[in-house]
């Protein structure tokens, strides 16, 4: 079984926000909701870096663990989806999520949260019909054999989506070509063993 993952190559992201726009367009998300966001650190400094974040479809998802209604499930492809019929808008998934992925439309008084909305890896969600699915969760591109639109549209191919193994292979190849000794996962104590590919490239 595939393990679907996103990965953003921070050395390639140019903060164009194309992924954000593509996502909004593909999924017709509610007003005020932005399933994907681009974060820039040290904007304008030499160490500026940008990275695109959304739901990371964690293996051990904190949102699933804390949900009082148990509305989350993991698909066979490792995608974390939720059932809006069960969601009560308590906000616990938002407290637990490291990436700020869950968002709540606030349309009623006192800032009461509506039903949670988050990135579905363009895989829709539980619904009776295709129309209902699109209405509630947005596109189901996975069912059509396509990858999430954000990654498909990324102009610098900074944002990668797909099976974890494929994504890792692409990134490893980039690291080797860049020639950074520990360019992939910096300061990793296991860097020397992790980057056999780099060593091989150096020797070859």
């Amino acid at each position: 079984m595939a393990q679907m993952k996103f990965m953003c190559d921070a050395e390639r992201c140019i903060e164009c926000n194309g992924c954000v726009t593509a996502c909004k367009n593909a999924n017709e998300v509610p007003w005020g909701i932005q399933r994907r966001r681009v974060v820039t650190l040290n904007d304008g400094e030499a160490s500026e870096m940008s990275i695109s974040v959304a739901c990371m479809h964690c293996d051990d998802a904190p949102c699933m663990a804390v949900c009082p209604t148990d509305c989350f499930h993991k698909t066979d492809d490792g995608i974390v989806l939720h059932d809006k019929d069960l969601c009560i808008g308590c906000g616990y998934c938002l407290y637990a999520c490291p990436f700020g992925a869950p968002q709540f439309p606030q349309t009623s008084a006192f800032g009461e949260r509506g039903k949670m909305d988050k990135c579905t890896f363009c895989a829709g969600g539980p619904a009776e019909s295709k129309e209902e699915e699109y209405e509630k969760y947005g596109a189901n591109r996975i069912a059509e054999g396509k990858l999430p639109l954000c990654a498909e549209m990324c102009s610098t191919k900074a944002l990668l989506a797909g099976d974890a193994q494929d994504v890792a292979d692409i990134f490893r190849q980039r690291v080797v070509q860049r020639g950074h000794k520990d360019g992939a996962w910096s300061n990793n104590p296991q860097a020397s063993t992790d980057h056999l590919a780099y060593d091989a490239a150096q020797k070859g």
């Binding site: 820039t40 650190l41 040290n42 304008g44 904190p62 663990a65 637990a96 490291p98």
Partner: peptide
């Protein structure tokens, strides 16, 4: 010089405290 494209976001890129909360609670 931190920028976030989400209009109402006051979130850091990674919120490590979420995991702490999850463990305390669960």
């Amino acid at each position: 010089n931190y920028r976030d494209s989400r209009h109402d976001s006051n979130y850091s890129l990674i919120n490590a405290s979420g995991e702490t909360w999850r463990h305390i609670r669960n």
